[in-house]
Each structure stands twice: as C-alpha cells, then as structure tokens.
Design a protein around this nucleic acid. Structure first.
Lengths: 152, 152
DNA sequence: TGAAATTATATTGTGCACAATATAATTTTG
DNA sequence: CAAAATTATATTGTGCACAATATAATTTCA
C-alpha cells in the first residue's frame, strides 16, 4: 500500500471495527428495548447471569465492580452510573462487601434473574438479522476474540 | 452451540467487536492527542483530506454534513457539535451553501490541510503497535469492510 | 402559484466512554 | 502501632452516539 493510501478511510481496519460495532449495537437496540436495556447494560447482565445463575453461593457473594470491569473492559466511570441505573430498574442491588467495605457487592434481584428468560431470544433474533451464514460469523468471532486477547 | 451458551459473553461476536473497537480507539488516543484530535474527529479529517487535497475545485465546493455522515455512518446529532469543535480549533470552516441555504459547506483551512502531513505518521505508528502481522490485519480489514457493506 | 411534502441541518435529552481526580478502606512498612 | 502506599469505588468534566424533535429552505404538485 502506498503511504498516501494509508490515510484513506476505506483502508482503515479500525474504521471497519468502529462502524461495524456501532451497526451491531443498532441491531441490538430494538431487541433490547422491550427488556429495558441498552447494549452495555445487556453486557453487564450477561456477566451477572453467568455468575449468579445456578450457583446459590455466588448469589450470596455477589460480584464486584472490578470483576465486571475486567470482564467488559470498562472502568468505574462507566460502570458506576450504569449499575445505578440497573439498580433503579430493580434488576440488581448494590451494597458494600461487609468483609471489605471498599468493595461493592452487586447481586441480581429476582427480576434480574427472571429477565434472563426473555433475553434468551436476543442472540437468536440477532442471528436472523445476519446477511451472512452463521458459520462465517463464528469464524470471525474467533478471530476477533483472539485479536482482543493479543491486544489486551 | 447450546441455547444457554449463546448468552455467554465469550461467545458473542458483538462483544468482540465492541471491545476491539474501543481498544483500537485507545491505541489511537496518544497518537492523535498531539494533533489535538479525537478518533471521530480524525475520521472526519480523513474524509476532508480525501475530498480536498489536490483538487482545488472541491476546496471551493466544500463538503456537506450529509456527505460526511454517509461516509462515516454518523448523523447530524453527532456531526454538528463535532464540526463546531474542529471549526473552533481552526481546522475547518462552516458556511452555508449559497445555492442551497439548507446545506452546510465544510472546508479545510490551511491549518487543516497542513495537519495532514503530521497525520501521515499515525497509521504507521498504529501498525507498530500491532501484535499481529500486517498481512493478517489486511485480511481481517477486508472481511470487516465486506461485512459492514452487507449489513448496511 | 401556494399549500403540502421533502430535505438538510440543528437542538435537546439520555447514556455511554474515559481521563483525571477524590475519597475512604485496607495493607504495607518503617 | 502509625504513617505511607495501595486498592476499590465514586465523582467530575468532555466528547461522542443516537433518538426525537425543531427549524428553515427547497421541491412537488394540486
């Protein structure tokens, strides 16, 4: 590629990532709106469901902001207000960890747990919107996840 | 994939896109800061440079908000304030198109044109940060651009 | 031609992202 | 043990994104 060409928008990997990421979020939006969730809120709920569904002990333990941040690559400046909104919606509770008062203990409420049932349809609906074969998406997903880990 | 597995964060293509896109932006940040640009501002400048470098006619004609929005997949709610910031920085001018007063005429200033020289180093520096071979990135870029067009 | 529809941009309001800083609890160390 | 360093979360401020709405210019067409 010519030096000049590197400044062309169409030659920029990062613009493709940026554009496609926003496009995907816009496809999620109508699916998540009935659940009362934004896409980042949905991601937080995914982590919470992973941690607290089935395991009654971790429901008691709760999840820290740091844990959520590590999983989602987000900092407290993003998570703190987001978690407050989910709390206000009644999907989770925020309380201090009694063994370390610095830590926050995020726990799903019953409503938060129940929401998982309705969320089951979301990935399926997303797949239906894809103009590409699911297999191709799986390949791409593996590539991107690998890249994300290498860059992280 | 099991139905339950579709709700796992690691199985979500869109989370990989979302995370990787933000990771890339964070790698751009220190490179763009000396230029006084954010990543979306940099993208606008890329389009402006494509349109107005070398072609003296289009410098006269200028570029509309709609054109920028079509290229970058952004709407006026994002672009209008962003363009005002670039104007305040002296990189471009915003004036009405005399043949159609609805249209805005965005033009690079001399400072905006000059900034392109310093921006030449940005794509090179980004490549240096990559833990992956440039060839692999090119392949991925082509895949993502193709997908972006199919989804659009 | 003039009212209705369309088009281009701007504005408002909400919710991320993230740097920088603040605060308070815990741990480390002198 | 107490001061210093570290850790976890919260707050502040700026700049996107984007839906919804507003405004004003242009076009369409009855």
């Amino acid at each position: 590629m010519d030096t000049d060409d590197t400044l062309l928008l169409d030659n920029q990997l990062c613009f493709a990532l940026y554009g496609l990421s926003r496009k995907m979020t816009s496809l999620y939006r109508p699916l998540l709106k009935p659940l009362g969730l934004t896409y980042p809120q949905y991601l937080v709920m995914l982590v919470m469901w992973e941690e607290q569904v089935g395991t009654s002990e971790s429901t008691l333990l709760g999840v820290s902001v740091q844990f959520l941040g590590d999983r989602l690559l987000l900092d407290t400046g993003t998570l703190t207000p987001l978690l407050k909104r989910l709390e206000k919606q009644g999907l989770l509770t925020r309380s201090r960890d009694s063994s370390d008062e610095r830590r926050l203990c995020v726990r799903l409420t019953d409503a938060g747990l129940d929401l998982r049932e309705r969320a089951q349809a979301v990935p399926v609906s997303m797949l239906c919107k894809s103009p590409v074969a699911p297999g191709d998406l799986l390949v791409l997903q593996a590539e991107l996840m690998g890249l994300l880990k290498k860059f992280k």
